[in-house]
Design a protein around this nucleic acid. Structure first.
Lengths: 236, 236
DNA sequence: ACTCTCAACTTATTCGGACAAGTGGACGAG
DNA sequence: CTCGTCCACTTGTCCGAATAAGTTGAGAGT
């Protein structure tokens, strides 16, 4: 029952490990395909496949007639902090949950969920803390069809987090998230909860399943003085 | 002198075109590899390479033993509006430039540029407009070593934009941008220029060349009431 | 009706061979 | 010294063959 990865994947792993260990430094030229064939004992097509995939992923750069050159561990969008995903995945502490139950969907939430305004939906509101300082107000809205049978409308904390809970109870899978960010003043309620009336980073995110349906909307109020979102992107 | 793309790229193009035209709809099963070999008159390895690449790019999903299935045009991080890159690429209108010259680098800018505080740098400040409404204050900071010989420190508008100007005059290439976003109140100057004192989306971006050096820092003041940044990301 | 087997179909991987095309350096001729 | 040619090296593309492995449906047997 031994699982051996495909050879091309092993070649990729070998090269990635050498890049990360510093054996191959950014700017260095890799051994040629012919050398790798001999060293690793595989066919040339296998080596080429590994190298092409590494190039597509951004680890290396291949130049026709010259060789393959190390770029380094690629910058990845996945490296960016995604506040809405963090909210969905974070386990809840015993005193975090402020509100859990059914409410009529406000217009902007209904639109994102693809339901009619005032349709009953489940809402779950909680406070996030960092070092005992209240750092954010997080609100999650879930259509009834997805919330029925779960504990989302109950005030008991979900220790494993909302995403895991939905996966375990209803086999719901997250595929992609559409996130919108703006700057706004806090509502009166938010200012009271946060103990501050300075500008907020407002995050409104829609979580979609693989078929594109909206599973939930996550709304975050992040005090501008406590939060900064960082992103790195390539320019072609 | 006719340029024919490689066959695997032509196969990719054919399939992408059929997906975008709706001939292959999301969820549909593609013709099998063997059928594509016959239809397109190429070798199986060529078809496989095209399909594998489309799968890696997110256009299709391949299931062992079952077939290849259409997902659709992939959501791409490149689809997200990048305000700092837009600033660098946008041509300047005749009355946009507010300030152009040399100043000592403030501490937070010096740090991002990797120079000592108060080192002379070139600053270029301008107003962005949408439908004749002032929509943003944009400030660009460039180390002298990169600005010398350019027109960045002159008030005449750069019609082709800053990025193209630096590429043409100094052969500087953009590789990646680190972008930080927060929410803050405007400075007095910003409030006056923008005609509003509501919360701002503050964007601070560092543009890097392929070797990782900082080419410039772009600072944007975007009124929260006029701007919303949207992003779509995959969740695994 | 249900279950199991097999055949036809599908993708996954690997290999080797061949030709095309680009790079860089060495060597020889002018 | 300069320039052109050639050679050794490099990656780029394409093909066919083979084996492995997964899926599905039809047919036969219980």
């Amino acid at each position: 029952m031994d699982f051996a990865p495909p050879k091309y994947a092993q070649v990729m792993r070998t090269i990635q490990d050498r890049i990360e260990s510093g054996e191959y430094a950014p700017g260095d030229m890799l051994p040629s395909e012919t050398q790798l064939v001999r060293e690793l004992g595989v066919g040339r097509t296998t080596v080429v496949r590994a190298l092409q995939t590494l190039a597509m992923q951004g680890w290396i750069e291949r130049e026709h007639g010259r060789g393959s050159f190390v770029k380094g561990r690629p910058q990845s969008a996945a490296d960016r902090v995604r506040p809405s995903l963090t909210t969905a995945e974070h386990g809840e502490s015993p005193d975090a949950v402020l509100e859990a139950g059914r409410v009529p969907a406000p217009r902007h939430i209904a639109r994102l969920l693809g339901v009619a305004e005032k349709t009953p939906v489940v809402v779950r509101k909680r406070l996030a803390r960092q070092a005992d300082v209240i750092s954010a107000v997080e609100t999650v809205w879930v259509p009834l069809e997805h919330a029925l049978g779960t504990d989302l409308d109950k005030p008991e904390p979900l220790r494993r987090g909302i995403r895991q809970h939905l996966q375990a109870v209803k086999h719901l899978r997250f595929d992609h998230i559409t996130e919108r960010i703006n700057a706004r003043p806090p509502t009166e309620e938010e200012a009271e909860l946060l103990g501050s009336s300075g500008p907020l980073l407002g995050v409104l995110a829609t979580v979609h399943d693989p078929a594109g349906n909206a599973l939930m909307v996550i709304s975050l109020a992040l005090p501008g003085s406590l939060h900064e979102l960082e992103d790195v992107f390539k320019v072609s």
